[in-house]
Structure formats: C-alpha cells, structure tokens
C-alpha cells in the first residue's frame, strides 16, 4: 500500500510538470550556491553549470534520524532532461545523482543518491515536485518527497523585488519528522533568493540561493 502510494505520488508529480522553474542547472558557466535549512534537515549545493543542460555539484546534507544525525556529502551530476519554453511559462524536468561519504551516529560509511525534479512556473504561479532516494550501508533507504505550489501577489519586472507565497509539503518517512507542511514566503532580487517559513508543526525553515 505504502509502496504503491509512493509510486502514484511520484507519477502525479511528474505528470504535473507540464511547465517549470529550475534550480539544479542554471545558465551556462553559472555558479550557484544553495542552502536549505530546517530543524530536521539541511541541504547544501554548490553547482557549476558547464552546459545549458548539465551541471556538476558538490552536495552535503544533514538529516535528523531516530538513530542520530545522518550526514552525507558527495559529488553530483545534474541533468536538465527536458525544458519547455512557452511565451508565458517555462517547465523543466531534472534528473540528478551522486555517491560519496556518509556518517551516522559516529559511524562512517558511504551513500548514493538519485533524484528527479519537475517544475513549472509563470510570472504568477509556480508548481514543483521532486523525489529523492538515497542508499547507504549505514541505514535504511532514505526517501524524500517534496511538493510546492506558489502564487505571486504581483508580477514583478526584471529589476524589481519579486515575492511569492508558497506551501511546501515534504514526506521523508525515515526522519524524526516524517512529514512537514510549511507555508513560506520567497523573495528574490536579481541573483539573490531568500525563503523563510514555519511548518504547521512549528519547525522553522530558512533557505538561501544565489548564482553568479
């Protein structure tokens, strides 16, 4: 039942990706720095887009599990599998994966991870879904599903501060917090993006991203 639910959820998220917005790969020769922080999980990316549809990344993650703190760090390859550029919207599907070191409750090991992300956006709405699975010799398979919808209260021009209101739903059954529903605000100006929110369970979230 659980497995079928996850497969169905993944298919729904992928099918929603008719149009989109993109983080794992940016414009050619762009360097991106991304940091997602929540009380139960952090995710840091340093990416270099060497082609319009491909990037290499150094990634580190922190996850709070019942056994203790779980840290993973690995090189990653990001691939923009498909992009739709429409007059008023854009959509993307990304696939990525990597393998490297892991540490759980003072035990060292290794981990490998794959993920798929699909997003779509116009200047006034945004939708994104992703699924990641990570294998390690230290613990059970880690799954992470995330879904977002957002609306912009106004359509910002290129040199104006853009603001968004979003709701994020996360599902990660092996963490201390199995799910989180987080209303959040996103602001960006030029090449810097900030997000902040608090989940319905009271967990804070603070994200930051910029590219140059």
């Amino acid at each position: 039942m659980g497995k079928h639910f996850l497969i169905a959820l993944g298919l729904v998220l992928i099918s929603l990706a008719r149009v989109g917005n993109a983080h794992p790969v940016s414009y050619k020769e762009a360097i991106g720095v991304m940091a997602w922080n929540q009380s139960f999980m952090s995710d840091y990316w340093l990416t270099y887009s060497f082609a319009p549809n491909a990037a290499i990344a150094a990634r580190g993650m922190r996850m709070e599990m019942p056994e203790g703190q779980y840290l993973v760090y690995f090189p990653q390859f990001d691939w923009l599998a498909k992009r739709w550029n429409n007059p008023d919207s854009q959509a993307n599907i990304y696939v990525y994966g990597g393998a490297g070191g892991a540490r759980l409750a003072n035990r060292d090991g290794y981990a490998g991870q794959v993920g798929i992300e699909a997003d779509a956006e116009s200047r006034s709405w945004f939708i994104m879904g992703k699924w990641e699975s990570m294998w390690s010799n230290l613990t059970d398979v880690f799954h992470h599903g995330e879904f977002r919808v957002g609306l912009a209260p106004y359509e910002a021009e290129f040199n104006e501060i853009a603001s968004w209101l979003m709701i994020q739903v996360q599902y990660h059954p092996t963490l201390t917090k199995k799910y989180a529903i987080t209303p959040l605000a996103r602001l960006f100006y030029k090449n810097v993006l900030w997000e902040a929110g608090v989940s319905l369970q009271g967990d804070w979230m603070l994200n930051f991203m910029f590219h140059f």
Binding site: S26, E155, A156, K190
Partner: peptide, 29 residues
C-alpha cells in the same frame, strides 16, 4: 520564450554585457 523569472533571466544580462558590441541590455519580462 520562457523568460518568466528575473532570477532565472540574470544570465541573459551577464552574457550580453560580456559582448564587446553591446552597450546596454534591457530585459522586460
């Protein structure tokens, strides 16, 4: 086509400004 986000369109100004022939770039989403 596809230019819906200022954050994503930053690369456009950066790349065009690097061209000797370009004096100025103006993006209107």
């Amino acid at each position: 086509n596809g230019m819906v986000c200022g954050f994503c369109a930053q690369g456009i100004t950066k790349k065009f400004k690097a061209e000797n022939a370009v004096e100025s770039v103006d993006v209107k989403l």
